[in-house]
């Protein structure tokens, strides 16, 4: 597949991103660079100084709503991007509405309870929709413990072990690796396993 073929195919798909922090902002940037041009991104948070160690924001964006800042940054990569931004802390009722027409959803929340809520709600409403989850990326080093494990339609990226804490904060490289593992998994799904109607192709 040439890069032109890849772009052409990616035009048919819409990707949902739940969370625009370290995982969501970096994952979305990579997806847009690859040619994903139709996105819905949800986050309620504001860019802070402490986010700049790992998130795709800049010092002059501190204080901005993350989804607004992210849209601004993504449009600098791809001018004709179709991006719907949702500035809201998602509750279960939002999920079937926001992600109904997304071919893949990226779980990029920070808080484990929010992660669980999102995955359970997606499984309830769309049992077969692929969900690309990020879990376990705090700290530094140990590249080779980061992996992707497939459980049915859940594609789980990360080490599944290292939780963030004061002594084990999330830092740029490891967070961005997992964010890019998620983006790479989305590409694998969209370019390989799905036809252009978004139906899963049996392997």
């Amino acid at each position: 597949m040439t890069f032109e073929d890849i772009r052409k195919k990616l035009k048919y798909f819409k990707v949902g991103i739940a969370g625009a922090g370290g995982l969501g902002s970096n994952c979305t940037a990579s997806l847009v660079r690859a040619g994903v041009a139709n996105l819905v991104v949800a986050d309620f948070d504001v860019v802070t100084e402490s986010n700049l160690n790992r998130q795709f924001y800049f010092a002059d964006q501190v204080g901005m709503k993350k989804v607004v800042a992210l849209r601004e940054n993504l449009l600098r990569i791809h001018r004709n991007l179709e991006i719907q931004i949702i500035d809201k802390k998602l509750v279960p009722g939002d999920i079937p509405v926001l992600f109904a027409d997304c071919h893949v959803v990226v779980e990029a929340f920070d808080d484990k309870a929010q992660k669980q809520m999102l995955i359970e709600t997606l499984l309830e409403y769309f049992p077969h929709k692929p969900v690309v989850v990020g879990t376990g990326m705090a700290g530094w080093g140990e590249n080779n413990r980061l992996k992707t494990v497939v459980y049915d339609n859940l594609y789980v990226c990360g080490d599944q072990q290292t939780e963030i804490s004061l002594d084990c904060p999330p830092i740029g490289p490891r967070v961005a690796i997992v964010a890019n593992m998620q983006a790479n998994m989305v590409l694998e799904l969209l370019l390989g396993k799905m036809d252009t109607h978004g139906d899963t192709i049996e392997q």
Partner: peptide, 10 residues
Amino acid sequence: VIILHLISGG
């Protein structure tokens, strides 16, 4: 059976 445990960070 799938049992996925979720941890904070992202």
